[in-house]
Simulated assay, not measured.
Amino acid sequence: MYAKALIYKSHTFLIYIVKISIIAISFYFIYSKLALNDSLSLPEFWSVLKSSAIISLNSVLFVGLLSVVNWFLEILKWQNLVNAVKSITLKSAIAQTLGSHTASLFTPNRIGDYGAKALYFPSNLRAKIMGLNGLGNLAQMCVTTFFGSIGLIFFTKAFPINFDFKTLHWSRYLIFGLLCMGLILVVKTYLKPETWILKTKRFLSSISLSLLGKTLLFSTLRYLVFSFQFYFLLQLFNIDLGYLNTMMIISSLYLLASILPSIFIFDVVLKGSIAVYLFSFFNINETIVLSCITLMWLFNTVLPSVLGSYYVMSFKGPKL
């Protein structure tokens, strides 16, 4: 009896340490991006904010409201997806969405989000939950690709971008080829693509058109909200390129950022470098562009992760 109690206490303590570690690592990455950002220092960022209308109460509240709407749509999308296999409340959907967001901050391309959400469910449902999560992310990617492709087509017509392939050294082709061969070998050896493809077909055949349509609708609404939020921030910094030109750049930015692999917490750096390049065609000040990207990151990544840390600490796992 004493041994069982000791094992239980050790297990509880280990889980507590894991929770604290997840939050500590997430907050450390957030701090490093704010305090140790080579592209935009905190004094520069604060100076830009003071010289614009962004620090007014009404502006902050409106930008914050757009973030709330953005994440509420993501929560509703997740609840709608999960209800296909197990009915969950809005409260549970909030906990799962924000908690997994915090837990996946330091994982490449938010891959940790899959495992984090699956942990909220019994083992017999986890494969389906991960598949539904993938469907939600795929729907968001499809919307981003659709609008981004349109924006990028117009952008490249207005500003032709030429790539000089002569400058690429032959060794880069060799390294790229070896990486592709290694990836194929890993997939063939460990992932068993034949079995995976068969399971994927079975899973997709079980998805109703109604569920797919609602998922795409929530994804589209989310895209419209956060892209408008970016547009509104630019207006606060007195950057008026016209609505169509601005949305052309924003949609191109999100498409290019989504196809490049990165750790989610470093998303601000990736988006910042792409945004500076795209807005440079319109001679927009680099500091202002980086400030807008940083604000988008603070409102849509950092604040939700702070809220999500509560759900990480209160996580208890599924009831069996």
Rank of each mutant, 00 (worst) to 15 (best):
K4G: 05
S10G: 10
S10D: 08
I15F: 02
V18Y: 06
A24M: 10
S26Q: 06
Y28C: 10
K33S: 06
A35H: 06
N37K: 05
E44T: 13
W46N: 12
S47Q: 10
L49E: 09
A53N: 07
L57E: 00
F62M: 05
F62R: 02
G64P: 01
L65T: 12
I75W: 00
W78Y: 04
Q79V: 09
V82T: 14
A84C: 01
T89R: 08
L90E: 04
K91T: 08
A93P: 08
L105E: 07
F106V: 15
R110S: 13
L119W: 04
I129E: 07
L135D: 05
G136T: 11
Q140W: 08
M141G: 09
V143Q: 08
V143D: 06
I150E: 05
L152W: 09
I153R: 08
F154V: 13
P160R: 08
F163W: 14
K166V: 11
L168Q: 12
H169I: 12
H169A: 13
S171N: 12
L178Q: 10
L179K: 13
L179A: 15
M181V: 15
V187C: 12
Y190M: 11
Y190F: 15
P193S: 11
E194Q: 15
K201S: 11
S206T: 14
I207L: 04
S210R: 13
L211P: 00
T215H: 06
L221V: 14
R222E: 08
L224I: 14
Q235F: 04
N238P: 02
L244I: 14
T246I: 05
M248Y: 04
M248F: 03
S252R: 05
A257D: 03
S258W: 04
L260H: 02
P261C: 00
S262H: 08
D267L: 01
K271P: 01
S280Q: 05
T287W: 01
L290A: 03
S291W: 03
L295P: 02
M296T: 08
N300M: 01
S305D: 01
S314P: 02
K319L: 09
